[in-house]
Design a protein around this nucleic acid. Structure first.
Lengths: 342, 342
DNA sequence: GGATATAGTGCACACGTTTGCGCTTATTCA
DNA sequence: TGAATAAGCGCAAACGTGTGCACTATATCC
């Protein structure tokens, strides 16, 4: 490998000078700079990032923990899209992204600690979907730069990027109400996710604002596995007074719900309306195109990376909690062409 | 940050000894090892990987280039699943995964060169879906360890992990033939992808083995965007002698095709059968569950990472080109309950 | 024309780790 | 019992880069 010394020797200057050339130090003559740069180009020199980091204490790298497969939330395109946003932004700022994972959930803290203590990354992106997270505490104690994608009740002040999921669910529910529905159910995801709690809260809020009531039987929670949504339907529809519309936690579940309903002989949206979240690209291609709240996953990742870089470089942030906009994408599954229901 | 020297000072030994303790050097007394390890534990010591890499010339890191957004192939769960496989394996071997990307396709070589020349990673995973790739040449010249996920006509000898896509397409087509179909069409993906070419070849092979013929109009190629599959259908079905079954390049396209057909009044599978590839989790939840060839994406990533680590550590590989099995998942979209067609 | 500022460069040390070699002390062997 | 061997550890150099300080040569000032 060609080092700074090799360049120095050929150019007839000291290694220090070469180092200053690469970092565009002002006190280097134009002449020298040109000569050195030419030689670097010719020899295909690239600085050894390890050596650089060792002295500069900065790695030009962002860290992120890949969620465990167990979290079915990430079996769909969610994580890929998020990552695209993160990496795209990071790259454009000259940073790379380091991914690691764990085999046991209990090892998560260890993995993070390794990155932090080993000075492997300049900052960490946290996908803290769960309600309680020891990692946040650890990072705060160590004053290590990090950004939370999501929200934490336990630590409300940390840097975070999120949608207003309460509002989003409220909007979705209101949309159904405007369509004339009065009996609206909610099919939620895993209840230990903050986002699941938020969406449920938004649902309740919208109902009470409209003076509508709900029932415990109308609210159910399924795993993120698609079939669950499907299975959930058979019992659900046997209720004496069943909902005429459903808010569903995620498109993947909605797919299962839609299929389950169809199989049971119900028509969407004539018999029952549907609206969901995350706007999976396939949602518009479902047998009945599924209405969905687009939360801008890519943008979420992009913004998170941007904030983290600012924080890692010690730059001030306009505000600590960024809320990104969501967008209601209304499709056939929630458009009630026939008549208003009572 | 606590360094090896801090530990040494407290333990009353030399830094060398501490270093040997962490690497389990045989010539360290049990007593010393225990004492040093206790102190490391207490102070939360983690080795600085930059310093370590600097002398050991190894980074314990794998590199991968995130495909550009332009490659719609990766808008679905594909990349996420692949990454999960890669990172899981890498982590279990003590490696992390570094992701980088580019803003222009022409920068890809530069990005790779930066990783290689800057000694940022020990090996590189290539998602070379395209037919020609200058990166492969570069890595070969520099004798840098890398593994290709996919196949290269240009460089057939490089380390690679792939399915037998020709055989997979053959299997899919044969399945339709066994169902009694004689007019079988093919909806392909972007034609500059090796995998698209392979699947088309397998399709042709199966037909000619069964003495069946096809027509140019039966074969069409769409982008990976789902609507394309949808749009493609309107013209397609107006052919005088149209196929009674379709092989589709990817589930996302199949979703569009399925929806297009339904909208045009055709029933799947009664009027036209469908089989596709990649076995997207949502495929079984389509209005008509879509038959698909499962290519084991996670396993692909896992195996690729495994091979790369072997290569990076100079260990011999049993064979250079690994072919992973695929699996036909037959669902309703290709089961012909009514009658055989002529 | 001497003092002072300024541009341009080199020296030497630092970053945290690994590792070959050499030094002690204890053990084994004939 | 003396020599050879082995166990356990420290010294010092090295990895490639950044940077404070010092040094020289030139330009500027009064």
């Amino acid at each position: 490998m060609v080092t700074i010394k090799d360049i120095a020797k050929i150019a007839g200057v000291s290694p220090s000078t070469v180092s200053r050339v690469v970092s565009n130090h002002p006190r280097i003559s134009h002449e020298t700079s040109r000569k050195v740069k030419a030689i670097m180009e010719e020899l295909g020199y690239h600085p050894n990032i390890m050596a650089k980091s060792l002295v500069s204490k900065t790695t030009q790298t962002l860290g992120i923990l890949l969620p465990r497969p167990a979290e079915e939330l990430f079996r769909n395109e969610f994580f890929g899209e998020l990552l695209r946003g993160i990496v795209t932004q990071a790259t454009s700022a000259g940073y790379d992204t380091l991914i690691t994972t764990v085999t046991k959930d209990t090892d998560e803290l260890m993995a993070i600690s390794r990155l932090v203590r080993g000075q492997r990354v300049d900052g960490i992106l946290l996908l803290s979907s769960r309600t309680s997270d020891p990692i946040i505490g650890f990072l705060q104690e160590n004053k290590f730069p990090f950004v939370l994608i999501g929200r934490s009740d336990e630590f409300p002040d940390v840097l975070s990027i999120d949608n207003n999921n309460i509002q989003a669910a409220q909007d979705a529910t209101n949309h159904l109400i405007r369509q004339g529905h009065t009996r609206i159910g909610f099919i939620n995801g895993p209840s230990n996710l903050v986002v699941a709690q938020d969406r449920l809260e938004g649902y309740h809020k919208a109902l009470s604002d409209a003076n509508l009531s709900t029932r415990p039987e109308w609210i159910t929670s399924v795993d993120m596995i698609q079939e669950s949504g499907f299975r959930a339907m058979s019992g659900y529809m046997n209720q004496p007074e069943r909902p005429s519309a459903l808010v569903v936690f995620d498109d993947a579940i909605a797919f299962g719900v839609l299929r389950g309903l169809t199989e049971l002989g119900y028509n969407v949206p004539d018999d029952i309306s549907l609206i969901s979240f995350n706007n999976n690209p396939l949602s518009e291609l479902a047998s009945t195109p599924i209405s969905s709240v687009d939360i801008g996953i890519y943008h979420l990742g992009y913004t998170a990376s941007q904030s983290l870089l600012r924080a890692a470089q010690g730059k001030p942030l306009p505000e600590n909690q960024l809320i990104l906009p969501h967008r209601l994408v209304v499709r056939q599954s929630s458009i009630n062409q026939i008549s208003k229901r009572s």
